[in-house]
Amino acid sequence: MKLTYYPGCSLHSTAAGYDDSTCFVCRTLGVELAELNDWNCCGASCAHATNHFLAVALPMRNLILAEQAGHDVMAPCAACYNTLKTADHAVRGRDGQAMTINADLEEIMGAKYGATIQVRHPLEVLGSWEMLREISAKVVRPLMGLRLVTYYGCLLTRPKNVVAFDNPERPTTMDKILTALGAEVKSWSYKTDCCGGALALSQTAAVATLVAKLVTEAERAGAQAIVSACPLCQVNLDTRQNQIARPMPIFYFTELMGVAFGADASGRWLQKHIIDPAPVLAALAKGE
């Protein structure tokens, strides 16, 4: 399988470990990635929060470039995935404003978006039945005994008519992947409750309350760590646990895949975490 890779701004800075581990995992599973040439920021929540034109035009420029590259485009950041998918959906649905913006972009870039490619998230790509079989086959260090909860956050699964690869409030794709790695996935009710990442800098106190709730509930569910598929969620949860007595590590699901596949580089990814995940994994090494 060949895909165009859209890392987005976070994976080039705060979430470098997500970037590396995603590329490693895809390589291992035979998914060929080529980074989108000259990609721009998708505008994230800041564009859709304040300017509709930017919210459509910024992701659409990337879609035009990806369409020229000729393959489906994969975006690991939930916010990027959501904005790209929303722009794609608007063009497919012949939304009036999106058509006008598409024409404006044709004037600026000399090409417009024809919606001939798909926007995909790594969970969607790696969560198919065929892939799950491949994943189990590649495990050299099963995550036996590691108790986890999966956290999807808000942007991966909603709105359900736009993203539509899993249930909007009880998704299971990540659960299946982690189970294939040998981990014990605990059930909890907070898989898609928002962590407030988009407002982490501007509404810090309110966001700390949301994070505290999630971590407390994860602990109550019996988990040792939370697993995320979004760089905004991971950074927010990893850095805003100041109200928590025993902070809990926050993994990217691709990091745990890398650990289970025996990636030499996994130590480097995990060193970037603010809350050290080593103790949780050390127990694993000893088979406790």
Binding site: N40, A44, A49
Partner: peptide, 27 residues
């Protein structure tokens, strides 16, 4: 909530300048 508005505007200002967001600049 002026702080939220200020954050969104700071973020977008870096995107307008560089084409990509720039955290240190936004902050």
């Amino acid at each position: 909530e002026p702080r939220t508005a200020a954050f969104h505007q700071s973020f977008l200002a870096t995107v307008e300048q560089f084409g990509r967001s720039y955290e240190a600049g936004t902050i």
